[in-house]
């Protein structure tokens, strides 16, 4: 801002701080709950400050699991989630960037038809096609497998569209200069287009990792063996376990752990992420 109006500045800060508090409070409560023992969390009033059981709770949930439901250690679920999220995210980027490359840089029959076919699937979320997809996956014997978790979610119209728009904004002369320099199409793709798409890839990585990590409905359908449960599933199952007093301290510890990887991805990729969304470096 050009003008310096102290009251306005103070007011905007107040609004921002309030917003942060409102968003952060549940997270804080989750953390606090994960540091007490089970009985404290069932008494009223609920504590607002951390207790002494942090290490014990996290150890238990990580290596023994939540005994009242399944009892698989959360480490396994976290690893499943990680494999699924990375698989979905990297797969989506690979497939969509090559699809966009084909659509933008090659003239083949039904090119526009292919583009529109991809575009139309934008309007069909996983949930709409979940029953037929399940049928196919079951038929192929991919229930309870990583491929079953990953492959059906791997196509991405959004990412294809984003890459297409980016490629369209790359000047044609760049492709022509590389042709004159002697680069074939794949060489151009790898040497020029990929490095130039760096920030777009980073932004998509963040978005798609979180998307993959937070999948709930599909893993719930396609796995029925504990060793393939994902972290998000495990957290949900704990909270809804019947016929038992919930151990909120462990449930909240699991929630904290399930939240951690997406947070880390955002923190570490924040700079590229923001640049990828706002900047067009050419």
């Amino acid at each position: 801002m050009v003008e310096n109006r102290p009251w306005l500045t103070a007011f905007s800060h107040l609004v921002v701080i309030l917003g942060v508090l409102i968003i952060a409070f549940p997270v804080w409560m989750t953390f606090v709950a994960s540091t007490h023992d089970a009985s404290t969390m069932l008494r009223s009033p609920v504590p607002l400050l951390p207790g002494p059981y942090l290490i014990q709770n996290y150890k238990e949930i990580l290596f023994q699991g939540y005994a009242r439901t399944s009892g698989i250690p959360l480490t396994i679920a976290l690893m499943n989630s990680m494999i699924m999220a990375l698989g979905i995210c990297i797969g989506k980027i690979l497939i969509s960037i090559t699809a966009a490359f084909a659509i933008v840089y090659f003239r083949f029959p039904f090119r526009m038809a292919a583009f529109w076919a991809i575009f139309v699937t934008l309007m069909l979320p996983v949930e709409v096609r979940i029953v037929p997809t399940y049928g196919v996956v079951a038929g192929l014997g991919m229930i309870n497998s990583y491929s079953g978790l990953i492959i059906p979610l791997i196509a991405s119209a959004t990412a294809t569209f984003l890459f297409r728009q980016f490629f369209l904004s790359v000047p044609d002369e760049l492709a022509e200069a590389s042709r004159v320099d002697g680069a074939g199409p794949m060489r151009f793709f790898v040497d020029i287009l990929l490095p130039m798409s760096r920030t777009t890839i980073a932004a998509l990585f963040v978005i798609q990792f979180i998307y993959g990590w937070n999948q709930y409905l599909w893993p719930l359908l396609v796995t029925n063996h504990e060793s393939f449960y994902t972290a998000v599933m495990v957290v949900a199952r704990q909270a809804t376990a019947v016929d038992a007093t919930p151990s909120w301290n462990l449930i909240m510890a699991a929630a904290m752990l399930a939240m951690l990887p997406p947070v880390l991805v955002v923190v570490f990729m924040q700079r590229q992420f923001v640049r990828g969304l706002v900047e067009t470096e050419k």
Binding site: P171, E173, A177, S178, V180, G182, A183, M196, E281
Partner: peptide
């Protein structure tokens, strides 16, 4: 042949040295 374009068409992510040597490396 070698071509010089109106908007130069330099590869934005490569250094000047890399830009000039790209065709030779290929």
């Amino acid at each position: 042949i070698a071509m010089v374009f109106q908007n130069y068409a330099l590869y934005p992510h490569m250094s000047v040295y890399e830009n000039m040597s790209y065709g030779l490396r290929i």
